[in-house]
Design a protein around this nucleic acid. Structure first.
Lengths: 131, 131
DNA sequence: ATCCTTGCAAAGCTTTTGCAGGAGA
DNA sequence: TCTCCTGCAAAAGCTTTGCAAGGAT
């Protein structure tokens, strides 16, 4: 964090630790609840500010659920990209990686002279348990 | 609409007409502004309720912008699926279709025994004008 | 006649912001 | 010391909802 010019503070340490120890995708408000449960040190405003900051600094990734809420998740390295399948019945999230899709995305972008920085792919449907 | 058990009312007619005549993606609130400019007949609450309804009935499609806001767009037929590139600088939206990507998605879903119903793919980056 | 829709206004949520005090480098 | 960061509380959006009146079938 220091290499990115960000100060290391208790709220930032706590939030990053909780985010990294969570296997799940979470909203800002869920993180705030975890912070409270953990007796950690951050107000609601700071949680919102810090998550946005950590996402911008590439410590967290963001995605949308189907309905417009921003979800955060830990990002272990900046190459750690994966996509999501979401079960519309139980809301379970399955992660997957497809290099083929990424390759085609690059081709599509190139065809439009578009400089690709990021992508989000979400597949919705029924998981094996809910079918 | 009647075939789907929905009543045909002035607000619904007006909103659908405006949505169909718009080339753009829009938020519920933008639609409300258009309704006012058009001297059309719908309150803000009705715009929200109607857009959700029309999307559910497959007259409109939904997508997210990068930051969690739901955007609507007209859906000419239920096969009319396309994906989006969004320029992070000027927010321009470029639509594209890739059957290759759709095919690979089907394969990925099948590999996880996932019954695919819908998908969203958003590419973010810089468009040709902003590069 | 029945019951679905609407408008209004209020409430509900989530997220952002101004400002003064406090902490990191 | 000099900024940057935080907490608080208020505000700012955006979206939903209860209820009574009105409209579609």
């Amino acid at each position: 964090m220091r290499t990115k010019g960000l100060r290391v503070t208790n709220p930032r340490r706590d939030i990053l630790r909780i985010a990294w120890s969570s296997p799940e995708h979470f909203t800002a408000d869920e993180m705030y609840v975890w912070v409270l449960e953990d007796d950690a040190d951050a107000s609601r405003a700071t949680v919102y500010r810090t998550l946005a900051l950590l996402a911008q600094a590439d410590f967290l990734a963001t995605m949308n659920d189907g309905k417009g809420t921003v979800l955060y998740e830990k990002q272990l390295s900046s190459d750690d990209h994966h996509d999501h399948m979401i079960c519309v019945a139980c809301r379970k999230i399955i992660e997957f990686v497809s290099h083929d899709i990424e390759r085609i995305q690059d081709e599509v972008a190139a065809r439009h002279s578009f400089k690709l920085q990021n992508h989000t792919l979400r597949l919705e449907g029924l998981c094996v348990d809910c079918k």
